[in-house]
């Protein structure tokens, strides 16, 4: 197990509502994986942060949507 660490405080999301923080971390993570592959350490870091912020159910649903091509956010193919 690594030393205690979690998604850091993000100046872009200073409010109580962290929905967009989770969303942006997830999108960053997946775009990074599409560009650099899953083994890239930067992508793993984004993945850790996204998992720290987003509920497991959300990530599962978004992964499913990405597999089906119905994910409402940006993805590698469209950008």
């Amino acid at each position: 197990m690594e030393s205690l660490s979690t998604a850091p405080r993000d100046e872009r999301f200073p409010h109580t509502n962290q929905t967009r923080n989770c969303w942006v971390r997830y999108v960053e993570w997946k775009l990074c994986e599409e560009k650099h592959g899953e083994e890239e350490s930067e992508c793993k870091k984004f993945g850790r942060w996204a998992r720290a912020l987003c509920p497991v159910d959300w990530i599962e649903r978004w992964d499913e949507q990405r597999a089906n091509g119905t994910f409402p956010g940006p993805s590698g193919e469209s950008s």
């Binding site: 205690l4 660490s5 979690t6 998604a7 850091p8 405080r9 200073p14 850790r48 998992r51 720290a52 912020l53 509920p55 497991v56 159910d57």
Partner: peptide, 23 residues
Amino acid sequence: IINPAVTVKAVGHQWYWSYEYSD
């Protein structure tokens, strides 16, 4: 929010709480 070391997610359900330690 001071840079946290631990994140815990608390999800409300009808009728129990579930917790996630995804770090």
